[in-house]
């Protein structure tokens, strides 16, 4: 039963979906504060390379090294996000141009590749990597075992993050303030919320999440460093935020959905069915376009749509 194609695809869908989930949660935080960051792919790659560097260089037992490596990846992602934050919040540059420039600067042929070369990280297997853990000894339980109880620690951490982000946005005062900043910075400013500070904080948090998402690749999924390791996951994460209507709980569903589509061609191939993998790989993008079209019709937009001030710089004098 646990070898049926559905279980296999869902189990690896959860694994493949986890980096998407981390990155999408981060992008969601940034977008909820009104900052669109198209640099996710770049931040993920820098997180992946620095996390891998940390795990290769930090001595000590594997567990501690891995935890520290994830921390390093988060810091690296946040450092890259700081460039974007400074350009778009303080200097009010175009968020689109800055985000794209960030991906080009940090991405596949840029900083991450430079760091990988300079720190001699290529062609070496990771000294430690996250392994699936057997939770409560239930890994062989029918159906749910492989999907829910036999994943890496990062998967369980991501679940905690989803709950934390959802509670933060919905139940706390700062969370309410962020949503205000994203919907209407003028109104937020009028009640004394520091718009720039909130936007900085959430853009940086978004970068940290993206860095951890990148580390999911270099420390768990494919524990090594190669240029362009993330293979476009950053763009899927941006799509995912829209797909999930800017809600963390739906991000989780969407991430596993998209992750399963990535896993499906391999599972089919193993069973001798050959389908062009491009068909499945293209689905996340096509579905995002469809969702966008649905969301952009009038009523749906007001109900579920993007934060009102997404992508717009806030200039006090222009109120």
């Amino acid at each position: 039963m646990n070898n049926s194609i559905l279980v296999v695809v869902l189990a690896s869908g959860v694994a493949y979906g986890t980096p998407l989930l981390f990155a999408a949660l981060g992008e969601l935080l940034a977008e909820r504060s009104g900052v669109l960051n198209l640099g996710v792919e770049g931040m993920m790659l820098v997180g992946a390379v620095m996390g891998f560097w940390a795990v290769q260089r930090i001595g000590g037992p594997g567990g501690i090294a891995l935890v520290l490596a994830v921390g390093v990846a988060a810091l690296a992602g946040a450092a890259i996000a700081l460039i974007h934050a400074f350009l778009v919040i303080t200097l009010r540059a175009s968020q689109i141009v800055s985000g794209l420039a960030l991906t080009i600067f940090a991405g596949g042929a840029g900083l991450s590749s430079y760091l990988g070369n300079d720190l001699n990280l290529a062609d070496a297997p990771a000294r430690h990597a996250f392994q699936p853990v057997d939770v409560f000894g239930l890994q062989d339980a029918p159906v749910l075992g492989p999907i829910v109880f036999h994943q890496t620690a990062l998967v369980y951490v991501s679940w905690v993050c989803v709950v934390a982000v959802a509670l933060y946005l919905r139940q706390t005062r700062p969370g309410l303030n962020v949503r205000a900043v994203g919907e209407s910075p003028q109104a937020a400013d009028a009640v004394g919320i520091n718009v720039a500070r909130y936007r900085y904080a959430h853009t940086l948090a978004g970068g940290a999440f993206a860095g951890v998402g990148g580390a999911c690749f270099s420390l768990a999924l494919t524990p090594q460093w190669v240029d362009g390791l993330t293979g476009g996951a950053g763009w899927i994460a941006i799509a995912l935020v829209i797909f999930a209507f800017w809600r963390p709980d739906l991000c989780l569903v969407g991430a596993y959905f998209f992750g399963a589509f990535q896993a499906l061609p391999f599972a089919l191939q193993a069973r001798g069915v050959t389908v062009a993998p491009e068909l499945f790989q293209a689905l996340p993008y096509v579905m995002t376009v469809v969702v966008l079209v649905l969301v952009s019709s009038g009523i749906a937009k007001r109900r579920l749509g993007a934060p009102g001030a997404l992508g717009l710089p806030y200039v006090r004098e222009e109120r």
Partner: peptide, 15 residues
Amino acid sequence: LQGPDFPSGLVGRCR
């Protein structure tokens, strides 16, 4: 130079 493809990247259009 086998270096990074850096410069084409970091360009913020500052207004």
